[in-house]
Each structure stands twice: as structure tokens, then as C-alpha cells.
Amino acid sequence: MEEKKHLFDDPKNVKRLLAVFFACVVGLLVLNGVYLYLAKHHVIHHHAYYEWENFWGFYSFYGFVACVILVLVSKYVLRPLVKRREDYYDQ
């Protein structure tokens, strides 16, 4: 039986999705620049609690670095420390 082709069975669609996503990411950084520019010239009100929020792309880079560190620490520090065989508790 020939199975129905699904959305992501076609690698082209995956590539398209990735391309859209990367475009969004870059777009957000551009938007952030525009936003800070407008805020600097008092076109829109910008309220920041902390100094670093006034830097371009603070949240973007923080999110990225945070997640990479999260994964690297989980993989290289936590997993070697805590991983045991599946039947560890059954022995």
C-alpha cells in the first residue's frame, strides 16, 4: 500500500521551513534595531529595568547562549553524573 506523502516527508519542505525560520530570526534582530532607534529618538516609549536591555539584541543573544549552555551542561556534565542503566533501581 502506497502511503500518503506527508508534509515533512519531502526534504524540500523541511528546508523551506528552516529558511523561513532563519529569516524570522534575522528579521527579529533587524526589528530590534529599528525599535531601539525609534526609542532613542523618543518616537516610542522604551521602558527598561536594566541597563543591558538597551543593548541591541540582548534578549536574542541571551536566549541563544542560555539554551546552548543548558544543552551542553546537560549533555557533558549532568548526564555522565546521573545516567545509569534502565534497570538500575530494579536490582
Binding site: F21, F22, C24, V25, L28, L29, N32, G57, Y59, S60, F61, Y62, G63, F64, A66, C67
Partner: peptide
């Protein structure tokens, strides 16, 4: 931004 870059 925070979420998209986490996704990135």
C-alpha cells in the same frame, strides 16, 4: 526574540 533564539 528570546524564544526564537532559543529555538535557533
Amino acid at each position: 526574540e528570546l524564544l526564537f533564539f532559543s529555538a535557533l
